[in-house]
């Protein structure tokens, strides 16, 4: 069975909490985002990692709500948030 998987690559509006945390998980915390007219409240930030784009690095936030897992990508060059991936159950 394949995991239900979508790669929207869409710019999204994200509410983010910036905190002086000890590590990657706690410093930048996406709290909610809007996608396709719906608000998704993030329950947990599960993994924070970097992905190379040319010679630049984007930050990826693997997050989840009650029903789905998402990857939100933050581009530090243009300060844009992109919804990269949606994994359903």
């Amino acid at each position: 069975m394949l995991v239900f998987h979508e790669q929207p690559h869409e710019k999204v509006r994200v509410f983010v909490d910036f905190s002086p945390g000890q590590n990657n998980f706690k410093r930048v915390i996406p709290r909610a985002f809007f996608w396709a007219g719906k608000r998704y409240d993030i329950q947990s930030v599960n993994l924070v990692y970097q992905r190379r784009r040319g010679n630049k690095q984007d930050w990826c936030f693997a997050v989840s709500d009650q029903a789905n897992a998402f990857v939100l990508l933050f581009n530090p060059e243009n300060l844009e948030w992109i919804l990269e991936e949606v994994q359903g159950q």
Binding site: M1, Q50, R51, Q87
Partner: peptide, 24 residues
Amino acid sequence: AKMLCPQIKLVEVDPPKYRSTTEN
């Protein structure tokens, strides 16, 4: 793999995730 375990969840390999985590 699907024969051995029909309910297996398959995800495609994503090296940046693993590399970044190893760095941490």
